[in-house]
């Protein structure tokens, strides 16, 4: 009886967007006379930070400060259609729609600024601080509040834009399975280090060290949030979580958190990661979906690490102490 260490790896891909496409999302942008830009959506924020990330994309594409971009979501009366938040799709789909809407709004913004500054729109640039200025002559500029007031009261123009992103629906060939399921693919590789107690069958995950490739990070802290949350969820799936512990039997179903085993702070492993950026062909600023993928690579990496430690391959999740002890018993006999 001993505590034995093992290491395992897993490398995975994860598709961005609803499988087969056909999942459009729209965005509407309008400036008010306050110089703020409202982005109207009907997308939902599940806690992953969509409202923040979309404001960043909107601010970048408009060329205005992040603080001046407000998100109005989600209301089916005021927000244009969004398919929903799932399939690692919203930053990609909604982000693309916002970029398109921002380009239309920005065009009007630059035209009004050009009239006010008596130059051609091509001679103008945004400084990202709230000013539109003449290239090479930063003294000649107009602030977005003055610009928004001028557009509305002087020129009778709306600074607004419409955006939609849709990957057309792909049909599956029923004979061969030929299809175009995704917009792009993100990737991850996790190295798990575990310790298996052969007396109790318990597994302790010492570390999960991973590399992710996500196209472009819009907000690295929020990507890190997905990584840490996903790593822990993957670990929980590998070792603890089940609503039917003796599947396919249905007995022993938990009915609350006192009966459903989730890892807590004591089980938290060392989580370390690097994030690579290879911009995707079709994501806004090259983004790929990262949300779901982060839970996937830890599971096989942990199972492979357990095998590395004790020489038994448990292929039935979750890998509970009971399964480990039973498998070890068989080996010893």
């Amino acid at each position: 009886m001993a505590i034995i260490k093992g290491t395992g790896i897993a490398a995975v891909n994860y598709p961005t967007g609803m499988n087969l496409g056909g999942d459009p999302s729209q965005a509407l942008i309008h400036a008010t006379t306050t110089g703020n830009f409202f982005i109207s959506l009907s997308s939902t924020d599940l806690g992953q930070g969509l409202k923040t990330v979309i404001a960043q994309i909107g601010a970048e594409a408009l060329g205005v400060p992040f603080e001046n971009v407000l998100i109005n979501t989600a209301d089916t009366d005021t927000g244009p259609h969004c398919m929903g938040t799932f399939a690692s799709r919203t930053t990609h789909r909604v982000g693309n729609a916002v970029v398109q809407a921002a380009q239309e709004a920005r065009k009007v913004m630059m035209e009004v600024a050009a009239d006010e500054l008596e130059v051609s729109p091509d001679d103008l640039e945004t400084d990202g601080q709230g000013n539109i200025r003449v290239k090479g002559s930063p003294d000649r500029s107009i602030h977005i509040i003055d610009l928004a007031l001028a557009a509305h009261f002087k020129y009778g123009k709306t600074i607004s834009g419409r955006g939609i992103y849709m990957k057309p629906k792909s049909d599956v060939d029923p004979e061969t399975g030929k299809m175009d399921p995704d917009s792009t693919e993100a990737h991850a590789c996790t190295v798990a280090e575990v310790e298996v107690d052969t007396e109790t069958g318990e597994v302790k995950v010492l570390s999960l060290k991973s590399a992710y490739e996500v196209g472009r990070q819009v907000n690295p802290a929020l990507v890190e949030g997905q990584i840490r949350g996903g790593s822990l969820m993957g670990m929980a799936h590998a070792l603890y979580e089940t609503t039917q512990p003796y599947y396919p039997a249905v007995d022993h179903m938990p009915g609350g958190f006192s009966e459903y085993v989730l890892p807590g702070p004591m089980e938290l492993p060392e989580i370390e990661s690097v994030v690579l950026e290879y911009p995707s062909v079709n994501g806004p600023y090259g983004v790929k979906g990262v949300g779901e993928m982060t839970a996937n690579s830890p599971i096989p990496a942990i199972v492979n690490a357990i095998y590395d430690a004790i020489g038994v391959r448990i292929t039935d999740l979750p890998v509970t102490p009971e399964k480990i002890l039973r498998a070890l018993e068989e080996v010893e006999i």
Partner: peptide, 10 residues
């Protein structure tokens, strides 16, 4: 400017 920055989530 702001894409790629860890701005505080709102």
């Amino acid at each position: 400017n702001v894409v790629g920055q860890s701005v505080l989530r709102r």
